[in-house]
């Protein structure tokens, strides 16, 4: 030990704690993945390797229920993420490219408000609001509620990207006889693409992820994947849930990896702009 070079960046014990952290993060997921291939109907006893529960997910008794929930989840996430992304692009243009206007500083707080209000409170407030105005809970109420909390998640990477693009490009476009709308469509928007994609994917995942707000505002007959899974595990974890979890886990990881590489690609293609807000 005495010969070890003094490294001021290194503190004893930090490395083991980092490994502990990774262990805590991955052990539960890995165990569930492994047990999803268990042939046994009991979740405790390991029997043998099989794809039985994956077959059950797609063709079993509960398959239609989970299929419907998956379709709901995906269509809701698509609609919510698309709307939130459009609203976020407009908001970012207002905040970063439109100079001063009345209520600008309040706008920043407002956009981030969904992040500050606890999810359960948003859920309660939205439920009360829809019930008070006599809106029947159902598909539409879920979409509306999801748009609200997706906005800040779409806004963050989009605004970060826009901040990294100097306004000299739009000025150059205007100088070359482009109208403001052309400058936006032909120059700013293409340069924003990685940020917009990141924002969209982030909003999409956040929408897919939501349980508590959906659970409050959904109507009686409608389920999303999280609410369906929650309903199923109330009576205890069953092997088919582990198979669904594994599938969902793989999809999430693929999505995140995609978003990550899209962000990186943007960075490489365009050294003038920064992508610090991408992904996280």
């Amino acid at each position: 030990m005495a010969s070890k070079k003094v490294d001021l960046r290194r503190f004893p014990g930090f490395l083991p704690l980092t490994y502990l952290c990774l262990f805590l993060l991955y052990a539960p997921l890995v165990i569930v993945m492994i047990y999803s291939f268990n042939d046994s109907a009991s979740i405790t006893r390991w029997d043998s390797l099989s794809l039985r529960w994956y077959h059950d997910v797609f063709f079993g008794v509960e398959a239609p229920k989970f299929r419907a929930a998956t379709i709901n989840s995906i269509t809701i996430a698509l609609m919510a993420a698309t709307s939130a992304t459009i609203v976020a692009i407009m908001a970012a243009t207002a905040m970063l490219r439109s100079g001063r206007f009345r209520g600008k500083s309040a706008s920043f707080a407002l956009i981030n408000l969904p992040l500050m209000v606890p999810e359960i409170v948003t859920a309660v407030a939205t439920l009360i609001f829809f019930s008070a105005i006599g809106f029947t809970a159902g598909y539409l109420t879920i979409v509306l509620a999801h748009i609200v909390f997706c906005i800040p998640f779409a806004y963050l990477p989009i605004a970060a990207r826009m901040q990294g693009i100097e306004d000299v490009y739009e000025q150059a476009a205007q100088d070359l006889y482009a109208t403001r709308f052309q400058a936006f469509r032909l120059v700013l928007l293409p340069l924003m693409t990685p940020g917009i994609l990141s924002g969209f994917l982030l909003a999409f995942i956040i929408s897919l992820d939501d349980f508590i707000i959906t659970n409050f505002v959904k109507g009686a007959g409608i389920e999303t994947l999280p609410t369906a899974i929650y309903g199923a595990v109330r009576q205890g974890i069953k092997p088919n849930i582990m198979a669904i979890s594994t599938l969902l886990l793989v999809v999430s990881v693929v999505f995140v990896a995609l978003s990550y590489f899209v962000g990186r690609m943007g960075e490489k293609n365009n050294d003038e702009t920064s992508t610090k807000g991408d992904l996280i």
């Binding site: 100097e166 000299v168 490009y169 000025q171 150059a172 476009a173 120059v187 340069l191 293609n269 365009n270």
Partner: peptide
């Protein structure tokens, strides 16, 4: 205008 840092459209 010829801009100081050129402002060539990178895309």
């Amino acid at each position: 205008t010829v801009f100081q840092q050129y402002a060539l459209f990178p895309h």
